[in-house]
Design a protein around this nucleic acid. Structure first.
Lengths: 332, 332
DNA sequence: TGTGATTATGAAAACGTTTTCAAGATGGCG
DNA sequence: CGCCATCTTGAAAACGTTTTCATAATCACA
């Protein structure tokens, strides 16, 4: 039924080995090469990638493990990774972990069974701590999240600096009581928190930071609690920094429901230049992450690692770009 | 180096066949089964999926071919497909075509080489016309886009009805000069256009429809041309229907730049319940597509097709839900 | 106790390639 | 002209499984 390399060989009047060499840029005389190419066209032969992978021991496949492809940050990074991968002749297996360490472990096991040549991984805080203890037989590049002790190549944002930029921008615009909302699931929340703390203390402001689950609902509830249910108006926050797109959305939603003007009643700034941040109200001030560069760099690092398994570990830190919009207009 | 089924067999003191049976729920005595399971644990054996696929002739893999994963509609559908696929023990290969027929052809060829068990595909208008002429050796489920003559299982939105609902809603709210913006790359634009036309003529309104490239910029330019550069105010549109999220975004952006109030100067309605539509201005009235259902249904249909290759072709048409927001408040 | 049916197991073939190895052909050079 | 080096090709092994087929073991029943 299905036509294999042997059928092509028979039609071309050569051995299977020769057909294989024609297909895989081996050394073959021009005459035979042309016979084989004709036979390939005639038979409509399509290589069987499973067989090829088994014999050659190259899966030509990488894994991409992220929390949720619906998070626009990961969507954009994925697209960049896939473009780079297909260009390098690699397939990509996408895995959504929903920030669940068990799913992460399961998918890492699966990657092993697929014999992937490498993995690009955005781990949870919990998993990143234990990466060293669980040996894997493929190289891994961490994106977005990592820790000091990580023994893998990484490409991350300069989270602390970016958070500091937002705080300083708000300060420059005249805001003083600045509350910080940070996600508690990933290391980015931790780093952005520390950047916030450093900036606040340098500016001699009283920090007011809280870690919450990474959901719009949690942020919404937190803002409602502080701005509506809270005590005296004079003690309410004047501005808020949200450490990712999801939290930022919750903040904006809470403001809308409570009838708070942005920035009149509450200035807003956050991370992730999602499309809506440009359109909503006066526009929201955000840190834009270089998503394409992150994806492309991760892929490049992985390829280079495959070439040089013993090369020193590299950690690439990219800086974000602060896009100033109306949500942080000068106070007063 | 790497431990295979033979190594496990040796450790367990059985034949490789028995190990295989233990792994693949064959029939084995309890005693041997336990020996083998112990040996698996002891050796840290991981099956080699390439070998398994080659021998068993089941790739356990499906292809998912969409225009661009960054389009929130496809993002959500993909996630639903992947969840369903992993649950059924299937891997998913994701392909982005950028609405390019050549890339579509290339990826379909690749799917053949991967020996995928099936494909879920959102084709361009151009490709969907020629599906019948290019035989494929795997079942295909079309999503989002299809045509009358398609010989494959499909799951699509009731595009015409949904467009009609939007037009009628605008009419009920007092709007009469309703312009329609439709994407020219996919069949959805065509269907939504025809729904718009039918509704307009039933309401005895003068249709004013235009097909444009599926980009925010094109929609922005179109609105600017009609609302700013255009002629007498009395002839300008009072409302606009945008046939997808991208165009809708262009409309909103154009309104913002021109200082047009929504809905005061221009009422706005469109397709795709993207997150920003809830937050921008008074909220944008949209047709929400049942993205999860679409993805899950497509996967289910594919699985059933694999079970029954000769069963009659099925076309599932799902209806959208109209979410009314401030952007179409009563005129007056 | 003998016989046929049933069950559990192992030996070996098969999946479709790539790769190794040996051999044949060609050519250069002493 | 003979010999060695080089190049091209084919035969066969190998990749790690699953599956087929045969055989040994067990059991039921006459």
């Amino acid at each position: 039924m299905t036509v294999g390399i042997k059928d092509v060989a028979r039609v071309a009047g050569v051995s299977p080995a020769t057909v294989s060499r024609v297909l895989g840029n081996g050394v073959v005389s021009d005459a035979l090469r042309q016979q084989v190419e004709a036979a390939v066209r005639e038979t409509g032969y399509r290589p069987n990638l499973s067989a090829r992978r088994l014999r050659s021991q190259h899966s030509q496949t990488i894994g991409l493990i992220v929390a949720d492809i619906r998070n626009p940050f990961f969507t954009a990074v994925s697209r960049a990774v896939e473009d780079a991968a297909y260009q390098a002749g690699l397939r990509v297996i996408l895995c959504n972990t929903d920030e669940d360490p068990e799913k992460e472990a399961m998918y890492l096991r699966l990657m092993e069974e697929e014999r992937v040549t490498g993995v690009i991984f955005a781990p949870t805080r919990q998993t990143v701590e234990h990466m060293a203890e669980t040996p894997r037989n493929f190289p891994t590049v961490l994106i977005d999240r990592a820790c000091q002790r990580s023994r893998e190549d990484t490409v991350v944002l300069d989270n602390a600096a970016a958070a500091g930029v937002l705080v300083e921008h708000l300060y420059d615009q005249g805001y003083r009581r600045i509350v910080g909302l940070f996600g508690n699931a990933s290391t980015t929340g931790v780093e952005r928190h520390s950047g916030y703390m450093v900036a606040m203390s340098r500016l001699r402001l009283t920090p007011d930071a809280v870690f919450i689950p990474p959901s719009a609902e949690a942020a919404e509830a937190e803002i409602r609690r502080r701005m509506v249910d809270g005590g005296a108006v004079s003690s309410r926050p004047e501005a808020v920094v949200a450490s990712n797109g999801l939290l930022l959305m919750g903040v904006v939603r809470a403001a809308g429901e409570a009838g708070l003007a942005i920035p009149g009643d509450l200035a807003v700034a956050g991370f992730d230049n999602e499309r809506w941040t440009e359109l909503v109200g006066p526009g929201i001030t955000v840190i834009e992450q270089p998503v394409e560069t992150i994806g492309r760099t991760a892929m490049t690092m992985l390829l280079e690692r495959l070439d040089a398994p013993e090369a020193p570990i590299r950690k690439v830190v990219l800086s974000g770009r602060c896009i100033v919009r109306g949500s942080t207009a000068r106070k007063g």
